[in-house]
Design a protein around this nucleic acid. Structure first.
Lengths: 209, 209, 209, 209
DNA sequence: ACAAACGGGACCACCCGTTCGT
DNA sequence: ACGAACGGGTGGTCCCGTTTGT
C-alpha cells in the first residue's frame, strides 16, 4: 500500500554534501539569504536529512565554517611542508599559495568567514565567535612564520609579528571583499604581491619590487 | 471608516529617517537579515510610507548605499581642505581622518558597502554594482592624492598610484571586517598607521614607524 | 520654494478617462484583480483625482458598469432606428449589430457585466444588483422586439417573449465567455447566426439556415 | 522551542479539503478575491500545509479546476450509462442531468471554469488554458452525442455537431452566469428545456415545446 | 538515516483609503 | 480639481523547525 522510498543511508556523505552545498551558497548569497530548503535542494537531500544531521541552521553554519577553516588551514600549512633554506622561505610560500588560489577556475574568491561574521555579528553571536577564532588562527599561523623569520634573520627595523600578521590578514580579507565587489580578481594578486614586497622590506633592502 | 491618526507630511525627513535606520540596521545584521518592517519601526514610520518613498527594499538599499557613500566622500574630502605644505600632507590627513573615525563612540566600524556587496552579489546585481562604484570612487580619490604626491615629490621607488590605492582600500575594508569580527577596533588603527608608514616609505626614508 | 504642480482641471475628462481605463482593465483582469492605482496609472491621473471623483473603488465600478451599459444600450438601440418593413427586421438588425461587434479590432469580446457580477456577487452586492439590472434591461429590449414581432406576425408556435429574450441573453453572455476562454471569437458569430435562425424558425418555416 | 500542537498526517485528505474549500470560495468570490489564508481557514489547515501541497495559489487553482472538471465529466458521462433505445436518448439524458443540478440545494449554479477563465485570462495564462481545455472537453462530449444521434437518425436539416455543441455549451455557461447575476436559477431550467426542444427540432417535428 | 506532512510565523509587496497642501 | 505623503492592513510566498512514519 504505502510506497517504499529509497533512503541512501550514507550519513557521512550526506553530511558532507550538505556542508559543501551550504558553503557554496553562502559564498554567493550570504548566510541569512540562504535557506535550509535551498541547501537541501543543492545537496540533493530533504529537510528530514538536514535536521537529522544539524539541530538548526546555525549549527550547519558552524559546520560549514569549520569545514571551510579546516580546508584553509590545510592549504596554508603546506607553506611549512619543506624546511626553509632561507629565513623568508616559508613566508614566501604562504604568499605563493594564496596567490595560486586566485586563477583557479572554481575559486570562490570570497571567504565564508568574512561573509558570515558580517551578517551574524548581532543575530548569531556563536557564529561570529567562531569566525573570530578562525581569523585568529590564520593570524597566529602567519605570526609564527613571521616570528620564526625574525628569529632567523634580524629585521632591518623591528616589528611586532602579531601586528604584521593582522595587517596581512586584514589585507587578505579586504582583497577578497574588493575582488567580489568589483569582480576583478586581479586586485587580489597585486595586493598580495605588494604585501610580500612589504614583508621583504621589513627584513632586507628598502623595498624593491 | 478607517481611522487615520495623523500624517507627518515631511517627505524629506521621512526619507532621511528611513535611510538612516536602514544603514544602522544593515551595519548590524546585513541587508537580507534586515526587514522592511524593522526599518520602519526604527524610523518611526509605517510600511505605507516606506513603500511610498521606495518601490522595493532594494531601492531603499540603493538609497542607503548612496547616502553612506556621500557621507564618506564628504568626510574624506576634508583631507584636501587645506593646501598641502608638504607633498604628503593630504595623504597624511586622509589617514588621520580614517584613524579618527575609530575611537568615535557611535562609530559603526563596518562599511555598508562591504557588507551589502557580499550578500547581494548574486541576488541583487544592482546593489553590487553600486557598491563597486562607491569602492572605485574612494580608490580614485586616494589615487589622486597619491598621484599628486608623486608629482610633487619623486618617490624613492616608482609605483602605480592606482595599484597602491586599491591596496589601501582593500586594507581599509579588510580592517573593518576584521574589527567587526574580532570586536577589536584597535586593529583598524594599527593597520592604518602601518599603512601610512608604508606609503611614507614609498617616498622617503626606508620605513621607520 | 514649493514647486507648483500642474493640475489639469478638466473634471469631466478625468472622470471619463478613469472610467475608460477601469473598463479596459476589468475586461482583462476582472474587478478585484484590478487595483485603484493601476487604473490611475492607465488613466494618467493620481489617486487624489480618483478618490475625488469616486468615494470608493466600488463606486468607480458602478460608474464603469453604467458607462458600459449605456454604451451597449446605444448600440443596440440602433436596431430600431429605421421602421421595420418586415416584422422581423428589428430583430435581424439586432443580431447584425451584435455580429458586427466581433470582427472589430478593438473589440473586447467580453462583457464587463458578466465578469463583475461573477466575482462580486458576495463581496459587493451593490455591483451584482447593478449587473442584474443591466442584464434585465438588455433582456427587456429584446423582449420588446420579440413581442412586437409576435404582434405583427403570428408565430408558427407560441412562445413567451421574455423567456426567449433570456435565452438569447444567456447565449450572448455565454458566447463571449467561451470566446474569451478559448480565444476563438468565431464561436460568437456562429452562435449568433444559429440564434437568429432559431428565432426565425419560431415564426417562419421550420428552420433552414 | 516552537510548540507544535498536532500533525494530521492525511495528505490525500488534506489536499482534498483544500481543493474543495477553494472551489467553494471561488464559486462565490472568484479566483483573485479568494485568499490563500481564507482557503486554509475554510479547509482547517495552515498555510504551511497549503504550500506543502501546492507551490502557489495558481497551482491550487489548477487542481481545483481539474477536480471540478473531473466531477462534471463524471456527472455528464452518466448520460451514456444505459444504451440508447431511441437515437436522442443520450442527448435527452444529458439535458436531464443538467436540469437536475439546478434544484439541488447545495448546487452552486455557477461554473468554476467560467469564473476563473474570465479573471485570469491575462494574469494567469495557464489557468485560462486549462479552462479552455475543460470547456473543449465538455463540447467534445456533446459533439459525440450529437454525431451519434445524427448517424442513427437522419436530421431534418443538416448541422455540424461541433457547432451545435459549442452553441449548447455557450448557452449552458451563459445560463449559469445569468442565474448567478439575477439570482434566478429558474432561467437555467427554462433555457435548457428550450435548448432540448431546439435540438429535437433539428431532428424531428418542427419544434413543439 | 531519511522522507514528507505539517505548524506557525515572518517576509516583501501592495492594497484601498485618508489627509493635507496647492 | 488635483497631487502626494501617509496609515494601517492584507496578500501570496517562503521560512525554519517539528513530528510522524518507514
Amino acid at each position: 500500500m504505502k510506497k517504499q522510498v529509497k533512503t541512501s543511508r550514507h550519513p557521512e556523505e550526506t553530511r558532507k554534501k550538505i556542508i559543501e552545498s551550504a558553503i557554496a551558497l553562502i559564498l554567493q548569497q550570504g548566510f541569512s539569504a540562504t535557506g535550509v530548503e535551498q541547501i537541501c535542494q543543492a545537496a540533493g537531500v530533504t529537510k528530514g536529512a538536514f535536521f537529522h544531521h544539524f539541530a538548526s541552521k546555525e549549527e550547519a553554519g558552524q559546520a560549514a565554517l569549520a569545514a571551510w577553516a579546516a580546508h584553509g588551514s590545510a592549504l596554508y600549512a603546506a607553506a611549512k611542508n619543506e624546511p626553509a633554506r632561507h629565513p623568508l622561505d616559508h613566508l614566501h610560500r604562504l604568499f605563493d599559495i594564496m596567490i595560486d588560489i586566485v586563477p583557479h577556475p572554481a575559486a570562490p574568491l570570497t571567504c565564508v568567514v568574512g561573509i558570515v561574521s558580517q551578517e551574524t555579528a548581532v543575530s548569531h553571536p556563536g557564529l561570529r565567535e567562531a569566525c573570530s577564532t578562525y581569523l585568529t588562527n590564520w593570524t597566529e599561523f602567519a605570526r609564527q612564520l613571521l616570528a620564526e623569520a625574525k628569529a632567523a634573520l634580524p629585521p632591518r627595523i623591528d616589528f611586532d609579528p602579531a601586528e604584521v600578521a593582522w595587517f596581512l590578514n586584514s589585507l587578505w580579507q579586504g582583497s577578497m571583499l574588493v575582488a567580489k565587489t568589483t569582480q576583478h580578481p586581479d586586485h587580489v594578486v597585486r595586493n598580495l604581491e605588494r604585501a610580500r614586497a612589504y614583508v621583504d622590506s621589513l627584513f632586507g633592502e628598502p623595498l624593491a619590487p
